[in-house]
């Protein structure tokens, strides 16, 4: 038993390095998706202190809007622009009808309101687009398909899907542009001011309502990108909503307020759970992917509660 836990998996890793690399790559790609979802969480949490459970359904909703518009006969790029417009409308509606009336409520109430929004968006999305999974319009959007194989060593073979590479590139571009946006633009600075201190920001003339609408819109765009990437790998379906909860351990690992933390946390969780599933999963019957991430976060919390990059030391008793 001890041999199976402590020796055998490592022996497997060393004896088949190509398979190990393939596993790490799969974990890396899953990690990018977790990171993108976590990024949406972080944006909203930083600016308004709201823990947005609806980020997962926003991803589904954005993806469905895009595909649904295309099915209705709109050309792909116009559909993309329209989907961005829909996310903007959603952001404004959320700010006006949910966030503004709920200002200054305890965080559990805000959390519940986002779960309420989740229910609403699930019903709305199914009502408008139907409940069955849809195929993402990968080719129409000009995203690469197909795969390339790389030979490693004597007879090793690693297969990389082009769409995964594209996802990684898009994620990097997105984080870089967000970082630029936060550091160099006027609105970005206002966002950071709001994140630091609501009252101080308001007293120097920053409109909180406007800022909140903007962060929800930014989170919506991140959601759209996530939806496209996710949809290209599997289908656009409501099952993603549960997967989106994986962003929570990612956030614990990376810290609730750190954008680089979301990315690094996502990659650690993604790669960690894939390796755990492949090499240690069979010992207990497989399928441990569903909770391994939470357990990693749980263990992590005991040693470093503020996360890898988090600034705030959370309260302890």
């Amino acid at each position: 038993m001890l041999y199976q836990i402590f020796v055998d998996p490592f022996a497997q890793m060393v004896s088949m390095p190509d398979f190990l690399i393939q596993v790490i790559w799969e974990g890396f790609v899953a990690g990018i998706l977790y990171a993108l979802i976590a990024l949406g969480f972080v944006l909203i949490f930083k600016a308004s202190g709201v823990f947005n459970f609806a980020q997962g359904i926003m991803v589904v909703f954005a993806g469905l809007t895009l595909v649904g518009l295309h099915e209705a006969g709109v050309p792909a790029f116009l559909a993309l622009i329209l989907a961005i417009g829909v996310m903007a409308l959603l952001a404004i509606a959320v700010e006006r009808f949910v966030m503004r009336p709920l200002v200054n409520q305890p965080e559990i109430i805000l959390l519940m309101s986002t779960i309420g929004m989740t229910y609403f968006l699930i019903g709305f999305g199914e009502f408008v687009f139907g409940g069955e999974p849809k195929q993402m319009i990968t080719e129409e959007l000009g995203l690469p398909t197909g795969s390339s194989a790389f030979e490693i060593g004597e007879q090793g073979l690693v297969i990389l899907q082009h769409i995964d590479i594209a996802a990684a590139v898009i994620a990097i571009i997105m984080v870089a542009s967000l970082a630029l946006f936060f550091n160099k633009t006027r609105i970005g600075r206002a966002l950071r001011a709001v994140a630091d201190d609501h009252q101080a920001a308001q007293s120097v003339g920053i409109s909180l309502n406007q800022i909140w609408a903007i962060v929800w819109f930014a989170a919506g765009i991140v959601a759209l990108a996530t939806g496209i990437m996710w949809g290209a790998r599997s289908d656009v379906s409501f099952a993603l909503e549960i997967v989106a909860l994986k962003a929570l351990p990612v956030l614990i690992l990376g810290g609730f307020t750190s954008i680089p933390g979301a990315i690094v946390g996502g990659l650690i969780i993604g790669i960690g759970e894939k390796i755990g599933e492949i090499y240690w999963g069979p010992l207990v019957g497989g399928g441990i992917e569903s909770w391994l991430a939470y357990m990693i976060a749980l263990v992590f919390l005991l040693f470093r509660p503020q996360g890898l990059f988090g600034e705030r030391i959370i309260e302890r008793v």
């Binding site: 949910v98 779960i115 309420g116 229910y119 019903g123 009502f127």
Partner: peptide
């Protein structure tokens, strides 16, 4: 519609 109404009612 029920899901929508419940979500809206909760909020």
């Amino acid at each position: 519609v029920t899901s929508m109404i419940i979500g809206a009612l909760i909020v």
